[in-house]
Design a protein around this nucleic acid. Structure first.
Lengths: 189, 189
DNA sequence: CCCGATTGCCTAAAGCCTTTAGGTTGATCT
DNA sequence: AGATCAACCTAAAGGCTTTAGGCAATCGGG
């Protein structure tokens, strides 16, 4: 009997690949076991159950995203930082649609707090410090940016922009430019 | 044998309620049959399979949303129209989380084209005619608004705004105001 | 009003998927 | 070399989806 050499990490990594190739909803223990050349039950040593498997992929995705974002932000500020951060988001979702879908999973509060999610918000706040926003306005702006990035990327992934011109990337560039000017002159109530 | 009096419409309506109460991912033929007091196989006269059931709920949701939006837009223009449309979106998602999740389902192109989806885009365009946007800029703006609405609503539904203040509705109001001013003075390249 | 067709719902069964319990064997540490 | 741990297995229970085929309630036509 040749051992496959599974570890939790290798299982999760293979799960992430499966999700990217087959879609997040086809990430199941049996499909994964098939791909790993292993009996289904063997996975249960590394993962609590099917849901736990998906959560672990989500955490991996959030972590990878935060890592890329941090790297992209190094040495940038203002508009440059905004665009770099946004592009990381979009590129990641296009490269890894399954992982991105996983990252959208609703995590229970404790898990969410321990995930890389808060790091994202922190980076957005850091970007906004390059603009001149007072206290709560910064929060509103964080939420606006988060909404736009997530919304655009998931509509694009869903094919929502496929049947109209101009192509999606052009809108992306123009939208980022528009957000930049909006942040420079954020309207007070 | 007392008949339950199923029709495709009643099945889909019950499915929508189930999705709202239990979550879209728990919308399954067996759960639905249980709730309708009917054998699972009976559903298959009204619905092709589990996926078809979900698609039908998605189409119902898109249609309901478009109907509400059209009603809300009657007699409004400019900022009023923008806010009314946005609120329809957010309120619907909060009232009917399962249906809203269903509406996010990726439909095949033919089904999508025949759905109420295009009506949404058309209404957004109509709203934007109250602002002064040239050709492709209107498309960019449609996409921005679509992204913000969808992004905010799904982040909120996911609980993304739960653990920071101010509360989400305040951000919603401020974000809509910000979008209004942005549209009034849309930056050209 | 009744007869035949249609439709609504059923039982049965096959095949998949998830999860648990328990056993065996390879690797590792002393 | 022996003991221990981890990796992987087989077996089995139970749920879910889907198809096939059958009976009975209802409805339209004579």
């Amino acid at each position: 009997m040749v051992r496959a050499g599974l570890t939790t990490e290798r299982v999760v990594r293979a799960a992430a690949e499966l999700a990217d190739e087959a879609g997040f909803d086809r990430l199941t223990p049996s499909e994964l076991a098939r791909r790993l050349g292993v009996q289904v039950a063997s996975l249960y040593s590394h993962v609590k159950n099917a849901h736990d498997l998906r959560v672990k992929v989500a955490l991996l995705a959030l972590d990878e995203l935060a890592g890329r974002a941090a790297a992209a932000l190094a040495g940038r500020a203002g508009r440059d930082a905004l665009v770099a951060f946004a592009d990381v988001y979009r590129d990641y979702a296009r490269e890894h649609p399954g992982r991105y879908a996983a990252a959208q999973l609703r995590l229970d509060p404790a898990t969410a707090a321990a995930s890389a999610g808060p790091r994202h918000a922190e980076m957005l706040r850091a970007i906004l410090r390059g603009y001149d926003l007072a206290g709560p306005d910064e929060t509103h702006a964080v939420r606006l940016l988060g909404s736009v990035f997530h919304g655009f990327v998931s509509l694009e992934a869903q094919g929502g922009f496929d049947h109209s011109s101009p192509a999606a990337p052009e809108s992306w560039v123009r939208i980022l430019a528009a957000l930049d000017t909006l942040l420079q002159d954020w309207p007070r109530p």
